[in-house]
């Protein structure tokens, strides 16, 4: 299948800092692709380049065959962006925010589209309230709805649930899963393991600007083992990766202190690859 997004040796350097280092990716249409990595790994830089906000220092990036540097207007017509920071106009209403965004994209039948989206996001009753009166979760939902006004072929969600409480986070996950059914391609950055595992068809793990792993969550996990035996020795937590549950039990019986046996997750993959934790 023809890829919706292709990057080739994509790099971005800010003076001495290499923010993104030779990223090569192919993302097919309709996929939810996760970029997973700690803060400063290069996820947001990648999104900025793909959404034409930053120019790459080297390499190329194409969306639906349009080059992001040479054909930015064509790219912008295809994308919707939900940035990490809530950059809604707080002094305007939800409706006004969506209307202005729709007009920037020259959307026909804008009023009907806005009504449809407000219903989809469960915000129809707050359409004419000022955004500054919204809760954090409502603002995040409106931010995603705004990115959808133009019926984008590719949706960029940069840390869409950062700072939200677990209940609101789950509501947004449901919203994103509903979006997937419409066939839209979604690029999602996150440093939440559960989010990447639950939502993404494939995950690319970034560390210090480099792509260090790329596969489905299940395949990434399978590569490092099936189970983890966690022990606490002299106040230091240690992780032992084993193939199956039987081996985990056998290991646990040899430990003098209490142990935790659990299934491997993407954080363990990250630790295995880098020796560092993904989250603080």
């Amino acid at each position: 299948m023809h890829a919706m997004i292709v990057t080739d040796n994509l790099g971005k350097q800010y003076q001495d800092l290499v923010a993104l280092d030779g990223l090569s990716l192919q993302i097919p249409p309709g996929e939810i692709f996760g970029l997973l990595g700690p803060n400063g790994a290069g996820k947001t830089t990648c999104i900025k380049i793909l959404t034409t906000l930053a120019r790459p220092s080297r390499g190329t990036a194409r969306i639906h065959d349009f080059d992001v540097v040479r054909q930015p207007l064509a790219v912008k017509k295809l994308i919707g962006v939900c940035p990490q920071e809530i950059n809604l106009d707080r002094e305007l209403t939800a409706y006004e925010n969506l209307w202005i965004y729709g007009r920037l994209h020259r959307m026909p039948d804008l009023a009907a589209r806005i009504a449809e989206l407000l219903t989809f996001g469960n915000l129809e009753e707050r359409a004419h309230s000022l955004v500054r009166e919204f809760s954090g979760g409502m603002q995040r939902r409106l931010l995603i709805l705004r990115a959808l006004v133009s019926r984008p072929r590719v949706l960029f969600l940069d840390e869409p649930t950062v700072g939200l409480d677990p209940q609101v986070r789950r509501q947004l996950w449901n919203l994103i899963q509903e979006l997937k059914l419409s066939g839209i391609t979604i690029i999602l950055t996150t440093h939440y393991i559960e989010e990447a595992e639950m939502l993404c068809d494939r995950v690319g793990i970034l560390n210090r600007g480099r792509l260090i792993a790329l596969d489905t969550p299940a395949a990434l996990v399978a590569k490092v083992g099936g189970y983890v035996v966690e022990t606490l020795n002299s106040g230091r937590r240690q992780y032992l990766l084993v193939r199956d549950k039987e081996e985990a039990y056998a290991r646990a019986q040899t430990e003098p202190t209490g142990v935790i046996i659990r299934q491997v997750n993407l954080e363990d993959v990250f630790i295995q690859l880098t020796g560092e934790r993904l989250t603080n």
């Binding site: 207007l73 912008k76 707080r90 920037l104």
Partner: peptide, 14 residues
């Protein structure tokens, strides 16, 4: 600060 300007840059306007 508010990063509302970035919305214009990412929209199909010149």
């Amino acid at each position: 600060h508010f990063r509302t300007f970035q919305v214009y840059i990412q929209a199909p306007v010149t």
